[in-house]
Nucleic acid binder design. Structure first.
Lengths: 276, 276
DNA sequence: GGAGCGCTGTATTTTATGTTACGTATTTTG
DNA sequence: CAAAATACGTAACATAAAATACAGCGCTCC
């Protein structure tokens, strides 16, 4: 069975004429980058003419060059999403049970999630949450609402006016009245994205509320309205998606907000410490 | 110093207008693939128009779109050639901001937690939860109750008689009447351990309820009454303890229970799948 | 509440990319 | 050794993509 284009090529490279073989070798040499460039660039890199490149991809079974490129991109996407550590990390020892694959995937997800997340971005969001110009609302979807609760439970201690929106849709929809452009709304939404949340986000956005969105890598439609978007990896070998990466981001953010408030010498924090 | 385009983006994302920010977020969400596609594809993915994409790349300092794509390709080429660099976030090398110590500590916590947790132990707990002799109750403390909710939300789908105990102490204390030796009580309790939870656990234990305890490495006093104890690492460089390791164990357990029920060919699972 | 500025999308133009047709070179076979 | 078939490149063509011009809208700041 042939699963990658590289395999396909090495499978057929024997039956190719000289020019196309040079194309194949050039592509394999630094795969798959050459294939993502234009036909002209590919051809000069291989030292052949453009039609030869086209005949080459035709021989591989593709209808046209763009189709070939799409296939390469899809392959690359799959590769980038499940990074190297799974294959080269010998961290999964004897065990082999059902645990380690799950753990490994989760660890990968976290590394990948943070790789796409800069310190500055997190600091910006933390600042927004810490500056306390208005109120902070948190809400989540069916499975992610606990994350909203978790974050709310912490934030509510270190600052006032933090509200978790719970219960039925009609209840939190009415809270829109309290929201304005000085307020922040933190939404957790991973697929399948919930219609009710999208509607709610849209209305809040219209009222000028700043939205911070926690979502998965495919981005909830709410991203359209969000001021800040955090995209976490969710894929694990399970029937369910994993929210663990988002959970860790949430904890990191909680820590960052706390630190900022401490640095600002917020009275509330001092009061709090004296209480402990 | 800015070495990657992703950094460049997160550096300037704050100063961008809404549309371009959406473009930036879309690109970061699955970097760098979206940037390798055509302007039209990029624009629809981000939900903006093509000129906005072009203005976006112009703002990043590129003369035109192809130049931007070449830069992305070069970056990708460098990454693919030295796979080691891919696992680490180049944005936060040594020292850096507050992100990576937090992440590193969290990852360590998870590895440590699972190191002290055998496959068999997890499988036993999963079996206990899956065998469905009685009811399943879940409850947590001040900060960990969201974890109980998260687990309950999943378990309640794949099996009946799953209850999350919420609200005031008096409410769930009364639920003790419903509990017997065929039932399972899942408790999340990390320090500072809550008196009310300990009392509740003791009473449940006296009634013969099987207790599964999620706690920290110093073990809640509830461990005395528990049939199964999961001790997660919680130490992170933050003012707060981290529940992330326990969260991942919970997810692992949810996955294991689901798998067992699938393997047992539970009718409910089949019904569920037909609903999807 | 009004004027000015800036951002965004639609429509059009321009550029360059992929594709095809055809003639020449090269290799293979009888 | 000759003839045929196959492979390859040059050059013209068509198509799709990027770039630009312009108008409408929303926003901010007086």
């Amino acid at each position: 069975m042939i699963s990658s284009i590289a395999e396909l090529i090495s499978d057929r490279i024997g039956t190719m004429p000289a020019g196309e073989r040079r194309a194949a070798q050039t592509l394999i040499a630094n795969y798959p980058l050459t294939g993502l460039k234009t036909v002209a660039e590919f051809s000069t890199a291989a030292g052949v003419s453009s039609p030869t490149i086209l005949r080459f991809v035709a021989r591989l079974g593709f209808q046209n060059y763009p189709e070939f490129q799409s296939a390469l991109q899809d392959e690359l996407a799959a590769q980038l999403q499940s990074p190297a550590s799974r294959t080269l990390n010998p961290a999964s020892p004897a065990g082999g049970g059902a645990v380690s694959p799950m753990l490994e995937a989760t660890l990968d997800n976290m590394r990948e999630t943070f790789r796409h997340l800069s310190d500055k971005q997190l600091a910006d969001i933390a600042t927004r949450l810490a500056e306390r110009r208005g109120k902070t609302f948190l809400i989540g979807g069916r499975f992610t609402d606990p994350l909203a609760r978790y974050m709310a439970a912490h934030l509510a201690i270190i600052q006032p006016d933090v509200y978790h929106l719970a219960g039925q849709e009609s209840i939190w929809r009415d809270r829109l009245i309290d929201m304005g452009k000085r307020d922040v709304l933190v939404i957790f939404d991973i697929r399948r994205y919930q219609e009710s949340l999208v509607r709610f986000a849209e209305k809040a956005h219209q009222r000028g509320v700043q939205i911070v969105l926690f979502t998965d890598q495919w981005l909830s439609p709410i991203a359209r309205f969000a001021r800040h978007v955090i995209a976490g990896r969710t894929a694990v070998p399970s029937a369910w998606d994993s929210s663990a990466a988002l959970f860790v981001v949430a904890e990191t953010l909680i820590g960052a907000v706390t630190r900022q408030l401490e640095a600002a010498g917020a009275k509330r924090i001092r009061d709090l410490e004296s209480l402990r």
